[in-house]
Amino acid sequence: MRRILLVVAASLLLSACGSVSVASHELPANHGWVLSCSKQRLSEPSFFILDCATSSLLMADTTWTSWGARTATGVGRLGVVPCTPVCKVASMDFYPHTDVTLSDPITVDGDARIFHHVTLSYTFEGKHYTLSRSLS
Rank of each mutant, 00 (worst) to 15 (best):
V75Q: 03
R3F: 14
L102C: 07
A53Y: 11
V7W: 15
P85N: 05
V75F: 02
A10R: 03
T71H: 01
I114G: 08
T130D: 07
Y129H: 15
P45C: 05
L5H: 12
C37D: 10
G110M: 09
G79N: 12
C17P: 00
W33N: 08
V7F: 15
W33F: 06
K88N: 12
A53G: 05
L131H: 15
Q40D: 09
D51Q: 13
V22L: 14
R2Q: 09
D61W: 01
V8R: 11
A90E: 14
L102H: 08
H97F: 08
V8P: 08
L135Q: 12
V20G: 06
S15R: 14
S15F: 10
S15E: 15
W33A: 01
D93R: 05
Y122N: 01
A60Y: 06
S46Y: 01
A60S: 15
F47D: 09
P82S: 13
T130W: 07
V7K: 04
L5E: 09
S38W: 11
S15Q: 11
P82R: 09
L14R: 08
K127N: 14
W67N: 14
T84Q: 13
A69S: 10
F94A: 08
L135R: 09
L5A: 13
R3T: 14
L42V: 01
T63W: 00
P45G: 02
H117S: 05
R2C: 05
S36A: 06
H128R: 07
P28M: 02
V34L: 04
S21M: 09
P96E: 03
A9L: 15
L58K: 15
L131C: 05
R133E: 03
D51N: 12
K39L: 08
V7A: 06
S134N: 09
A23Q: 15
R133W: 01
A10Q: 02
T73M: 06
P45E: 05
S15A: 07
L6M: 07
L120G: 02
V118D: 02
S43H: 14
